[in-house]
Design a protein around this nucleic acid. Structure first.
Lengths: 192, 192
DNA sequence: CATGAATATGGCATCGAGTGTCATTTGTCA
DNA sequence: TGACAAATGACACTCGATGCCATATTCATG
């Protein structure tokens, strides 16, 4: 079992992320200092930076937690399924997170969109997903000198379609149907 | 005509970028301070930050300079040309930059790849291209509730294919034919 | 060419992110 | 309970980034 020490660590990491995001949304990213995040929890700035490499990372803590799950999901897709469809189906599984708390998801998307530093970070994290998923996908493709590149292009395309759909949905304040929009974005990429 | 003042400004901006990149390549991004960049040119740190918002920006100064050119190139593509092909042709025009100085291009790509902060910045700049190009492309698409999204997906896909091809080329130290590789990447996206 | 307005620069002070170090506290396990 | 390992806090420090103001440079006009 996990043990008290490990449990406390995960809890603190989670709390730091929660408090941080709340403050960013309420008062803006730049105007919120690390001390502001740490104070309500009675922790020190030094501890904060043992849990997160940068201030930006608190916004995308959940990205890291999902990486393994995504990889597993893609691995579990039926062997005969075409590669692009497998990646699309994998990404679709993420939508439950947006469904779970639409208001927060939209606020978070807006926060990211309006903060250049966060835009960069989100892409940086996305690049990690890309690399991991492409590594899985490669094994599905016929051997060739360029199958690594092909895997990367397929994953990157699906991911780009996905994020643009989510972004559009958030810009519209959730007025449209997210699932349908993502589906359309996937279809757009398929029929270039 | 430009005037002395304007000419000096552009020259200094160019010099700052050149010296900065050189030092980053030679001694690493994190270990090079802004003072290190500014010293050989006899400028002050304060002046540096009047030319570049962040230290990262010196690496991507040429991105900004190319934005208008890219937009114009896309606008100039024949009206009947399918949208994806128009974007691909537009991006192809960038390859002359990589041909012009292959060694430096490869070194720069490596620098970016190995520096997380620069990875984020490069995506951030790419996102600007995406937005600009998508805005142009929209006018080529049939009116519909989702044509904005469709334009974004098309542009993002082409751009992703392009950068992954360049990246692969740089990883291989320029051993493969860049033009052919980019062409293949474009084809991979087209035939998902 | 002289002169005053507009603009670019440098120096200074300041804030805050991020890191190294070490003493102290807290969880673990025999 | 006592010893060991791991987590934390406090402190000092570096450096990116910004506001402020005095100085220097360019430009437009007479």
């Amino acid at each position: 079992m996990p043990g008290l020490r490990e449990r406390k660590k995960q809890e603190l990491r989670h709390e730091l992320s929660r408090v941080g995001i709340d403050q960013f949304i309420a008062r803006g990213f730049a105007t919120t200092t690390v001390d502001d995040i740490v104070a309500p929890l009675g922790a020190s700035k030094r501890t904060f930076f043992r849990y997160f490499e940068t201030k930006e990372d608190v916004v995308f803590a959940w990205y890291d937690e999902l990486t393994h799950e995504l990889v597993d999901t893609l691995r579990a897709r039926p062997k005969h399924e075409p590669p692009y469809e497998a990646v699309c189906a994998t990404l679709m599984s993420l939508l439950r997170l947006y469904d779970a708390d639409r208001t927060r998801a939209i606020a978070l998307q807006r926060l990211t969109r309006e903060t250049p530093a966060l835009v960069g970070k989100s892409f940086e994290k996305r690049a990690i997903w890309e690399r991991e998923l492409a590594a899985v996908l490669v094994s599905r493709l016929a051997k060739s000198a360029t199958r690594q590149l092909r895997a990367e292009v397929i994953v990157a395309t699906a991911l780009a379609a996905f994020t643009h759909a989510v972004d559009q949905w958030a810009v519209d304040e959730g007025a449209t149907d997210l699932h349908a929009l993502v589906g359309k974005a996937f279809a757009f990429a398929k029929a270039l």
